[in-house]
């Protein structure tokens, strides 16, 4: 599977021009895009009626992407009512919602392999059963840390989803096609904040440099291949994570250069999230997220 040309969703473009970036800001989970919107409920229905059924490998893979997005949504949701300005309550809320939408789609699809619903997977798995990478569970920190995390996530997800639109698995391709438009906007949001914080005041520059240093150890894990991604890449259903590293480095490098920042020179953490080995943070995230659902097993909401 090769990467499609970036015609539909262009790169960040001239990021120095300010607010009018190239992000398709009309694409968002909270806006109604008739005929275009693929809802998690549609996927759940296709799975239930047997119209779509993932292979075991695809399900495992969808679980990884779904968990990434879910844990990030859980983190970002905390900012709603706490952001530095109202516009950011709205923006971070929107991004959280988009991520949650992607998570629901991926998890609904993954669950098709094991007769589980998105909620079974989100609420009734334990820590070691989650497949998210460590980056997504990193604490929000101050706004700069959150932006640093968003910067890495959005450029990574954009490159990944852009390629997955060509997946031989029709459902993965459809989820990615919707998600890539939204993530393009997330990229725009994070890049502009990188510029503002790096070139704003001395304090903001100090903080974003610190934020990037805190986040960068978790970058490497995103681009690690393993047997699953190898098989899926051979089958044309996914790409090897390592194959998108070059584009990620180039595009994030352009933004960092414009911001007068360097790629942080920090040692990489070993990761292990794809195998169920997580940091100390995930346990708390799950404890909070799952508490009510687990108090009432079998209940519907």
């Amino acid at each position: 599977m090769t990467a499609p040309e970036q015609t539909e969703t262009t790169g960040h473009g001239d990021i120095s021009v300010g607010v009018a970036g190239s992000g398709d800001s009309s694409a968002s989970a909270t806006r109604i895009t008739p005929g275009n919107a693929l809802r998690p409920e549609d996927i759940a229905l296709e799975v239930r009626t047997g119209l779509a059924k993932p292979t075991e490998d695809v399900a495992e893979y969808a679980l990884r992407l779904g968990d990434d997005a879910l844990i990030l949504a859980q983190r970002l949701g905390h900012w709603i009512s706490r952001a530095p300005e109202l516009e950011e309550d709205v923006a971070l809320g929107n991004i959280a919602l988009d991520q949650l939408g992607h998570a629901r789609s991926f998890l609904s699809y993954a669950g098709g392999a094991w007769e589980k619903s998105e909620d079974d997977l989100a609420y009734f798995r334990r820590e070691h059963e989650f497949r998210s990478a460590h980056l997504f569970e990193q604490p929000n920190g101050d706004f700069a840390v959150t932006i640093a995390r968003q910067f890495v996530v959005s450029y990574y997800q954009f490159e990944l989803y852009r390629r997955l639109t060509q997946s031989s698995d029709a459902t993965l391709a459809a989820i990615a096609a919707k998600a890539v438009k939204e993530v393009d906007y997330h990229r725009d949001h994070s890049a502009q904040w990188i510029l503002r914080l790096a070139l704003g005041t001395e304090e903001s520059r100090r903080r974003i440099i610190h934020g990037l240093r805190l986040i960068w150890p978790y970058v490497q894990e995103l681009f690690e291949d393993d047997e699953l991604t190898h098989r899926l890449a051979e089958a044309g259903a996914a790409v090897e994570p390592s194959s998108i590293k070059e584009d990620f480095d180039r595009l994030t490098g352009e933004v960092l250069a414009e911001a007068g920042l360097e790629v942080p020179d920090v040692p990489a953490a070993p990761g292990g999230g794809r195998r169920g080995r997580h940091s100390e943070h995930l346990g708390y995230i799950l404890a909070e997220m799952q508490v009510l659902a687990r108090e009432h097993p079998g209940a519907s909401w």
Partner: peptide, 9 residues
Amino acid sequence: DGAWVREAA
């Protein structure tokens, strides 16, 4: 907490 962010912007 957001003051420094608004100042930077």
